[in-house]
């Protein structure tokens, strides 16, 4: 697997590291090519999956004892309600994971964040404005599964960009450097 081949479409780790995907974002300019799209590493999503299993177990046990006080019709409602609550929790987390993306194009880097159900944040910086890139990958899971946080510091008043828990952080930096050099050579 050639991760550095940025001219060939590839998808890795449940579409968390996609090179040249069929992807379009709202603020994409004409002629701007999406080179890389990254999401949180799948292993970082394990917590809400565990939480949902625990939550479902607790609710079903509570329903079992509570249903002794209710008639069958009411008891059915408590079971259905429990499954719907857990389903809503799982679905919300899937949405947040799927739509929280880091995008690297041939012109800029973009970070799209959705927190909860009502907060949206889009941060972007042009490639030539990038000054420093920091990778933070500490801990057993980060080392074993090869993921980490990337902080992209920009010049001037442009906002800094952060990609959280993304796979192959080193490769992402190499791709950004490669694109920055290409852009400088073209100018």
């Amino acid at each position: 697997m050639k991760l550095m081949d940025i001219n060939k479409t590839s998808h890795n780790f449940l579409h968390t590291f996609c090179i040249r995907p069929a992807f379009h974002f709202q603020t994409q300019a004409d002629g701007e090519e999406v080179i890389l799209v990254v999401r949180g590493h799948p292993i970082t999503q394990i917590w809400w999956l565990i939480n949902s299993v625990i939550l479902l177990t607790v609710l079903l046990v509570a329903d079992y004892f509570f249903s002794m006080l209710l008639n069958p019709f009411q008891s059915l409602f408590t079971y259905i309600f429990s499954f719907i609550m857990v389903g809503a929790y799982v679905w919300l987390n899937i949405l947040i994971w799927f739509f929280n993306v880091g995008i690297i194009t041939n012109k800029r880097v973009v970070d799209i964040d959705f927190q909860g159900v009502i907060y949206k944040e889009i941060t972007e910086a042009r490639l030539e404005r990038i000054q420093d890139i920091t990778v933070k990958a500490g801990g057993f899971a980060e080392s074993f599964f090869n993921f980490g946080n990337i902080f992209i510091q920009t010049a001037g008043t442009e906002a800094n960009i952060e990609y959280g828990d993304v796979p192959y952080p080193d490769t992402i930096i190499k791709i950004i450097h490669q694109l920055t050099e290409q852009k400088q050579n073209n100018q």
Partner: peptide, 23 residues
């Protein structure tokens, strides 16, 4: 839950407009 599902619906519309994954 009914209100929440509508809020999620609106937000998903916004998300799908912001980030469009093609076929």
């Amino acid at each position: 839950y009914f209100v929440y599902s509508f809020v999620v619906y609106r937000q998903v519309k916004t998300m799908a407009t912001t980030v469009q994954v093609k076929d």
